[in-house]
Design a protein around this nucleic acid. Structure first.
Length: 852
RNA sequence: GCCCGCUUGAUGGAAUUGGUAGACAUACAAGACUUAAAAUCUUGAGCCCUUCCGGGCGUGCCGGUUCGAGUCCGGCAGCGGGCACCA
C-alpha cells in the first residue's frame, strides 16, 4: 500500500526550520550582486484572496530562483494599512480603525506565512504605524521646501452627505458611491504634489523601462497626454483683454468661425454676473453629470455671449464668443476656437447653431466639401492666405512662427496630466504636517516635532472628518510665532503611502526616511510584480516620488522599478440561486454538465460566466480552505500551472486536484521508489544504456529550458517541462544499465528545479534523497552544454511542403547523405508519384523539402 | 470615436521566433486492481472519409510573400482592455 505525503506536517516543519535558521533575512553585502524582488503590498482587508496567492507565488518563485543563482535577495512584505474601510468598520462595528487594521494584519500575516513565502519578515512595515508615517511627513517637508508641494483652490467631487471629497472613481453616475447623494463640484483649498513639473521626464523615461510591459508604458503615455499645438490670442472687440485659446490645429486658424469658453472660465463668470440668462446657462452646465455615460448622451449646448473677438491673422474678421458646455476649464486654457470644417465636435456645434463652416484643408484627392462632415485627415491648406498650398504639418509650423512674430500667440505643449491632489478629509490616513496660523499663514511643522500623530480618541458618530471634530487635537501653537493656530486636519491620499514603501523596505527601522547606504545598495527594485489595475496611478505616483526623493537628496536614482510584471486576475464562474441571490461555490453542487443545484434547497442554479473573483458576486474561493485541504504547495503549483502568468487564470477544482496529484506522485516516485536509486554521490557509470543516456540528456535539456522559462516568466511552460521530465524518469526501465544512477541524479536535479515552485515538498524530497542541507540554500543546477546537443537528429521530410516521413541522421550530416536517405523513404516516393525533383531544400538538422 | 491586445482540439494552453501543429495538463471514454468506491495504473482520442492500408482537411475569416506560414505582410470579423466632449 503506497504511503501518502503528509503536507500539513511537512509544510509546518519546513516553515519552522526556515524561520529558525533565518534563511530569508537580507543584509547588505557589497561583495555579492543584489536582487530586489517585490510584490505589491496588500491592503489589510482581513483575509488573503486568490489574487494575493497568485501574486505572491509568482514573486516567490523569482526570489527563490535568484537566491539559488547566488544573488543576495531582498524580498520583503508589508501593509498598505491606511484607508477608508477601517473608518467604515469603526462606524459600523464600533471598532477603532487601529485595532481593526492591526487585527486584520495579524490574521493575514498568519495566512501568508502558511504559503511558505521566502520573505524577510524582520522588515515588515505598516503604513499606519507612526514609525512609517513620521518619515513620510518628513519627506513631505522636504518636498515642501523644494517647491514640489502647493496648495491651491480646485474643483473637487464633494459628497454633501458624507462630508468628504471623493476620488473620481468613487463617483458613479454623478452620485457618491456610499451615500448615493448627487456629488457637487466644490471649489476647495487642497494640497497638491507638483507631478506636472516632471511630466516631460516621466514621459521620456518610459522608453528606458525596457523590462516593463509595453501595455503599461503605453497607458502611462496616454495618461500623461502630451499634446503639441499653439496658444492663440483673440482680442475682444470693445475691451482691452484677449481670450487665450489652445489648439492642436493652428493650421486651420483661417477656418475659425467662433470662439467658445468653458462655463467655468473667468470671463464667463464675469459676464454671468451681469447676465442672468448666462448665469442660468452656466448653472445648468454645472449641474450636469460628469460620468462617462452622461457625457456620451449629453447634447452640445451653447450660449452666445454677444461678444466678438478679432481674428489674429485676418484684419477685419470677427467671430462670436460663445459659452459651450463641452469646453473643459482644466485642459488647455479653458477656451477654444472652433473650426467646424475640420473638427467633428465643432462641426456638430456649428450645425446646431447655424455658424459658418469654412473648408481650409483639401484632402489628397482634392475633395473639399465639409458641409455634411468635417474633414480631419491630412491634406493641403487653401483659403488661408500665406498657408495656401502647404501640407498640414508644415502649415502648423509656419503659422506658429507667424503668430509668435506678431505677438498673437506661440507654439506650446499642453499635458493631460494634472497635479496630484493629495489631501483627503479623513481620519485614517497620514496627517499632513502643517499648521495654519492667522499671522504666519501656512507653517510646516518642524522636523523635531514629528510625527504629527493621529489622536486615538476619536468619534465616528458624526459624518465628516473626525480630526476636524476632535475637541483639542487641532489646536496648537504656531511653530513660528507661538500664537494659537490650527493643525491641518486633512490627511494624505493613501497612494502617497504606497509611493515610497519600496524604498523604506531597504532600511525599515531607520530614523530617516531611508538609510543611504542601504537604499543605494538595494534600490531599484529588480523585479516588481503586481496587478495591472495599478498600471497608471500607483506606478506613476511612485515614479514621481522617486524623482522627488532624488531631488531632495534621499535616493540617487529616478526610476524605482527596473523590471515590472503585471499578472492576470483569478476568475471563477458565478452562481445565482432560483430566487436571484449570489451563491458561494461551496453552496452549489454540479449534478451533470448542465444541471447545477443549490445544496441547501436542491433547486437549480443559474451558472454565470467566468469573471474576476469578487466578494459581491461570491465567486470566490478562500485560500486558507485550499491550503488546509491540499497544502500550500498545491495552491502554489496550481497558480503556476497551465495559464501564462500575465493572463487571467480560471480557478477550477479539477485544476487543484491535478496539482495535488502531481505533488503526491512526485513524493511517491522519490520517497517510495519501486526500484532503489544509486547511492548518494555515486560516480557516473562508464556506460549508460541508450535509453538511460537519452533520459540523462533530457535532464540537462530540462535544466536549461526551465532556467530560461523561469527567467522569462513562462512559469506554466516550466511546470509542463518539469512534468515531462518526471514522466521520463519514472518510465525509464530500471533494469537498463545506469538507470539507477540517472534516476538518482535526474531526480536530484528535478527537485532543485521545483524548489522555487513547491518549496516544502522540495525540502522533503531533498532530505529523502539523503541530504541534510536545506534545498533553499542549494545552488541552482547547471546544464552540461555537451548534453544539450544530440548526435542523431530526426529530420522531417516534406514533399511540396507536406510532411511525408522522417529520417534519423547524424548531426550536421552532409547534404548528399540526407538527400539520399530522404528520397529512399517509401512514403516519400509514393507522394512524389514518379515526378522528377524540381528543387530540393535541405535545412541542416531541421528539414528536407522536396519540390516536384 | 481614438489607442492597444487577443483569437490554436471538449477545456487551459505548448510550439527552439519561418521548418514534424496540438507538448504538458484538465475533462472524457475503455480497461486493470477492488465486494464496492476512492486512490493508483494502462490504453485511446484534432476533425472528416476508409473494414485494414491509407487519404483529405485543419491554428477566427479572405488574400499575399515563401520550397515551407500558428508564426511575416494587407484587408475583414469577433472578443477583451485602456483613454475619451482633451480642443
Amino acid at each position: 500500500m503506497a504511503g501518502r505525503y503528509n503536507f500539513t506536517e511537512s509544510e509546518a516543519k519546513w516553515q519552522k526550520r526556515w524561520d529558525d535558521d533565518g534563511v530569508f533575512r537580507a543584509a547588505v553585502d557589497k561583495s555579492r550582486p543584489k536582487y530586489y524582488v517585490l510584490e505589491m503590498f496588500p491592503y489589510p482587508s482581513g483575509r488573503i484572496h486568490m489574487g494575493h496567492v497568485r501574486n505572491y507565488t509568482l514573486g516567490d518563485v523569482v526570489a527563490r530562483h535568484r537566491r539559488a543563482l547566488g544573488y543576495n535577495v531582498l524580498h520583503p512584505m508589508g501593509w498598505d494599512a491606511f484607508g477608508l474601510p477601517a473608518e467604515n468598520a469603526a462606524r459600523d462595528q464600533k471598532i477603532h480603525p487601529a485595532k481593526w487594521t492591526y487585527d486584520n494584519i495579524a490574521n493575514m500575516r498568519g495566512e501568508l506565512k502558511r504559503m511558505g513565502l521566502s520573505l524577510d519578515w524582520s522588515r515588515e512595515i505598516a503604513t499606519c504605524h507612526p514609525g512609517y508615517y513620521a518619515q513620510q511627513q518628513s519627506l513631505f517637508l522636504d518636498f515642501f521646501a523644494a517647491g514640489l508641494v502647493h496648495r491651491k483652490e480646485a474643483f473637487v467631487n464633494w459628497d454633501p452627505v458624507d462630508h468628504t471629497v471623493l476620488a473620481n472613481e468613487q463617483v458613479i453616475d454623478g452620485k457618491g458611491w456610499r451615500s448615493g447623494a448627487p456629488v457637487e463640484k466644490k471649489k476647495l483649498s487642497q494640497w497638491f504634489f507638483k507631478i506636472t513639473d516632471y511630466a516631460d521626464e516621466l514621459l521620456d523615461a518610459l522608453s528606458t523601462l525596457d523590462r516593463w510591459p509595453e501595455k503599461v508604458r503605453l497607458m502611462q503615455d496616454n495618461w500623461i497626454g502630451k499634446s503639441s499645438g499653439a496658444y492663440v490670442h483673440w482680442p475682444v472687440v470693445g475691451r482691452s483683454d484677449k481670450i487665450q485659446v489652445f489648439t492642436t490645429r493652428p493650421d486651420t486658424l483661417f477656418g475659425a468661425s467662433f470662439v467658445a469658453l468653458s462655463p467655468d472660465h473667468p470671463l464667463t463668470t464675469e459676464l454671468a454676473a451681469k447676465n442672468p440668462e448666462l448665469a442660468a446657462f452656466v448653472a445648468k452646465c454645472q449641474s450636469m453629470g460628469t460620468s462617462a455615460v452622461a457625457i456620451e448622451q449629453q447634447e452640445k449646448l451653447g450660449f452666445d455671449t454677444g461678444l466678438k473677438v478679432q481674428h489674429p491673422l485676418v484684419p477685419g474678421k470677427q467671430v462670436p464668443v460663445w459659452v459651450a458646455n463641452f469646453v473643459l476649464m482644466d485642459y488647455g486654457t479653458g477656451a477654444i476656437f472652433g473650426c467646424p470644417g475640420h473638427d467633428q465636435r465643432d462641426h456638430d456645434f456649428a450645425s446646431k447653431y447655424g455658424l459658418p463652416i469654412l473648408p481650409v484643408v483639401k484632402a489628397p484627392d482634392g475633395a473639399a466639401d465639409v458641409s455634411k462632415e468635417p474633414y480631419v485627415g491630412p491634406g493641403t491648406i487653401f483659403n488661408s492666405d500665406f498657408l495656401d498650398g502647404l501640407d498640414v504639418e508644415t502649415a502648423k509650423v509656419k503659422v506658429g512662427e507667424r503668430l509668435k512674430a506678431l505677438g498673437a500667440g506661440e507654439p506650446t505643449t499642453v499635458w493631460r496630466l494634472r497635479d496630484w491632489l493629495v489631501s483627503r478629509q479623513r481620519y485614517w490616513g497620514c496627517p499632513i504636517p502643517v499648521v495654519h496660523c492667522d499671522s504666519c499663514g501656512v507653517v510646516p511643522v518642524p522636523k523635531d516635532q514629528l510625527p504629527v500623530k493621529l489622536p486615538d480618541d476619536v468619534s465616528f458618530d458624526k459624518p465628516g472628518n473626525p480630526l476636524d471634530h476632535h475637541p483639542t487635537w487641532k489646536h496648537v501653537g504656531c511653530p513660528k510665532c507661538g500664537k494659537p493656530a490650527r493643525r491641518e486636519t486633512d490627511t494624505f491620499d493613501t497612494f502617497v503611502d504606497s509611493s515610497w514603501y519600496f524604498a523604506r523596505f531597504c532600511s525599515p527601522r531607520s530614523d530617516k526616511p531611508v538609510d543611504n547606504d542601504a537604499v543605494d545598495y538595494w534600490m531599484g527594485v529588480d523585479q516588481y510584480v503586481g496587478g495591472v489595475e495599478h498600471a497608471i496611478l500607483h506606478l506613476l505616483y511612485s515614479r514621481f516620488f522617486t524623482r522627488a526623493m532624488k531631488q531632495t537628496g534621499h535616493v540617487k536614482l529616478s526610476e524605482p522599478f527596473a523590471g515590472l510584471f503585471t499578472q492576470g486576475m483569478v476568475c471563477h464562474e458565478s452562481y445565482k440561486s432560483a430566487d436571484g441571490k449570489w451563491l458561494y461555490p461551496e453552496e452549489i453542487e454540479r449534478k451533470s454538465d448542465d444541471l447545477v443545484i443549490e445544496i441547501a434547497t436542491g433547486k437549480p442554479v443559474t451558472v454565470g460566466r467566468r469573471e474576476v473573483m469578487s466578494k459581491s458576486k461570491k465567486n470566490v474561493v478562500a485560500p486558507v480552505r485550499i491550503i488546509g485541504e491540499y497544502g500550500a504547495d498545491t495552491a502554489r503549483l496550481f497558480m503556476l500551472s497551465d495559464s501564462p502568468p500575465e493572463r487571467d487564470l480560471e480557478w477550477s477544482e479539477a485544476g487543484v486536484d491535478g496539482a495535488f496529484r502531481f505533488i503526491q506522485r512526485l513524493w511517491r516516485e522519490i520517497v517510495e521508489p519501486e526500484t532503489p536509486f544509486a547511492p548518494k554521490g555515486a560516480a557516473k557509470p562508464a556506460t549508460l544504456s541508450p535509453e538511460a543516456e537519452a533520459v540523462w540528456r533530457q535532464v540537462h535539456k530540462t535544466i536549461a529550458a526551465v532556467s530560461e522559462n523561469l527567467e522569462g516568466f513562462r512559469f506554466n511552460v516550466a511546470v509542463a517541462q518539469v512534468r515531462t521530465l518526471t514522466n521520463a524518469l519514472s518510465e525509464l526501465d530500471a533494469k537498463a544499465p545506469g538507470a539507477d544512477w540517472v534516476r538518482r541524479h535526474g531526480f536530484e536535479a528535478l527537485v532543485k528545479l521545483v524548489g522555487p515552485m513547491i518549496p516544502h515538498l522540495g525540502e522533503e524530497l531533498w532530505a529523502a534523497l539523503g541530504h541534510n542541507t536545506l534545498l533553499t540554500l542549494e545552488p541552482w543546477p547547471k546544464a552540461d552544454p555537451a548534453l544539450l546537443i544530440d548526435d542523431t537528429i530526426t529530420l522531417a521530410v516534406q514533399v511540396n511542403g507536406k510532411l511525408r516521413g522522417t529520417i534519423d541522421a547524424k548531426r550536421d550530416a552532409g547534404e548528399d547523405d540526407v538527400r539520399e536517405a530522404a528520397l529512399a523513404i517509401p512514403t516519400v516516393q509514393a507522394a512524389m508519384a514518379g515526378k522528377p525533383v524540381r528543387k530540393l531544400i535541405v535545412v541542416k538538422n531541421k528539414i528536407v523539402n522536396i519540390v516536384v
